[in-house]
Each structure stands twice: as structure tokens, then as C-alpha cells.
Design a protein around this nucleic acid. Structure first.
Lengths: 133, 133
DNA sequence: GTCAATGCAAAAACTTTGCAACATT
DNA sequence: AATGTTGCAAAGTTTTTGCATTGAC
């Protein structure tokens, strides 16, 4: 994998934020520094970086994928209402034992795991209260 | 939510399998019993059933969402190579304590969690060995 | 110089939606 | 009878891809 300016900027921008942007949000972020970059390049690099373990690809909150510039295993909470994803600071080690158990029972060669909590973020909880009145 | 024939068949078919089909796979399954059903109806019902907690919507393995007819919390393992998702039989209770911890630290009102293991399924492990030779 | 990577634009893939007809309650 | 739901098709959104050109090594 060559070190191109585009790839480098995409990675830098992604590492700067904790907002778990979608592909087109990354595109907008990067475009401020590289106005001529194309969306296709962003998609191609997000995929390559993810495959290389430099970033993480997160699952659904709506239709689009979201990307996380932090490649280390850490956990997330997603708001069911607004779709926002926040990082959690939980000890990972609690689950390492489970990986072995999964490998044994499933026959999978386990390389990692993802843990996500679902709920309502503080902001959306307030919104709900307003509506209840 | 009314009990329509379409909704009923979608749910039944989904409960029959453990394969975590995509929306168009559900469409194909259901079409054998209801040849005139439309893809739009399948999408609408998968969304409604998921919101009602009758089924689960699973995150990315590629671009498409996958659906799980088992609404109870249980965990998954996904193959990074072929995308297949299998069910795991792990005790859920290990993580229930974490939900409270997350609620406290994040301010989220936590309603559940998802845990997924990533790795290579037995079949793809064999494929890899072939290629190494 | 070689070949991976890019920009552009077109195409593909997936999902949602408007609307008239229909079915459930 | 009222209204949620469907089928159909069209439109919308998100992602991928072909190809000529460019840039990293």
C-alpha cells in the first residue's frame, strides 16, 4: 500500500475526530484540504485502511457505514433515535476469555470482537420527556 | 400493527432459518409462498418487525443489512472472508452488569447490547490453507 | 519505468416512497 | 367505514467500477 497524499489526509482527518463519520462526511472533511479528491477515492481508501487495520468500520445506524479512526479495540454506544455513536471507555480484557470460548465451540479462528450498547443518548432522552408532557 | 398475511409469512420464514438473510434473500424465501409480494413490502415489514422487537437487524457484512428471526439477545460470529454469520450460544448474563456501568458513565439510557466476534469460519480456514501451499 | 492509485463519470446495488387499490379491524 | 397495508414503479441514496492519466517507489 503506497503512501499517497489522499490516503494520508483521510487517515489524519479520521484520527482527529471522535464522531464516527460516514463516507461522505469524511469526503467533506478531506475536501477542505484536498479540494480535488473524489468520492470514489475516499471509498477506496476507507476500505483499504479498514482492511489494513488502520481504522474500523462500524455497523448500521441507518443505511450508511461509519468509520472510526481509532483502530484499537474499544466499545461503542449508539443512540437508537439520532444514530449518534459515542466511544466508551470500558476494559477490554473482560471479554478476551470469551474469544477463546467462541473459538472452541464454533470452530472459528477468532481475531477480535465488537461490542456495542444500544439506547438513548442524553440529548434524545430530553427530547422524549418534552414529548411526554 | 395489523396481522397481514405478508407480515405473518415474513416472520415465519425468518424464524425458520438461522442463516441471517438479507432483505432480498427474505424476499426470495417469502416469494415461494406469496408469489405476488413486492420487495417494498418486505423492506417495510422488516423495518416494522425490527422496531417492534420481533426480529433483529444486524450490521454490516458488506453493504446489506441482515435479519435475524430470533429476537432474544444472543451473540454472533461473522466470517471476515465469506461474510457468513453464525449464532453463538454464550451466556448473556456476563454482560448485563456492563450495561449499568455504561449507563452511568455515558448518560445513555441503555436498552441492550450487541456482541459480535470476527474471524475465519472453518470453511474459509481450509481455503486459506489450500492457498498457502 | 512500473504499477498502484486517482479523478471523473457512469453504472450498479440497495432502499425508500407516492399512490391507487385492497384488506384488516 | 376507517385506516393501515400492499403492489407497482419510479426515485432516492449509497457504493462500486472502467478507464485514461498521474504519482509513488
Amino acid at each position: 500500500m503506497r503512501t499517497t497524499r489522499q490516503r494520508q489526509v483521510i487517515l489524519e482527518e479520521l484520527r482527529k475526530v471522535t464522531s464516527h463519520p460516514t463516507a461522505d462526511e469524511v469526503y467533506e472533511m478531506v475536501r477542505k484540504r484536498l479540494p480535488h479528491i473524489s468520492l470514489g477515492t475516499v471509498y477506496r481508501n476507507l476500505e483499504l485502511l479498514s482492511a489494513a487495520g488502520e481504522i474500523q468500520t462500524l455497523g448500521l445506524a441507518g443505511t450508511q457505514k461509519r468509520f472510526d479512526g481509532n483502530p484499537a479495540n474499544h466499545y461503542h454506544a449508539r443512540c437508537l433515535k439520532c444514530g449518534r455513536v459515542i466511544d466508551l471507555d470500558l476494559p477490554v480484557k473482560a471479554l478476551n476469555g470469551l474469544e477463546d470460548a467462541v473459538a472452541e465451540t464454533s470452530g472459528f479462528k477468532v481475531v477480535g470482537h465488537r461490542l456495542k450498547f444500544l439506547g438513548l443518548c442524553p440529548r434524545c432522552q430530553k427530547e422524549e420527556q418534552k414529548q411526554d408532557r
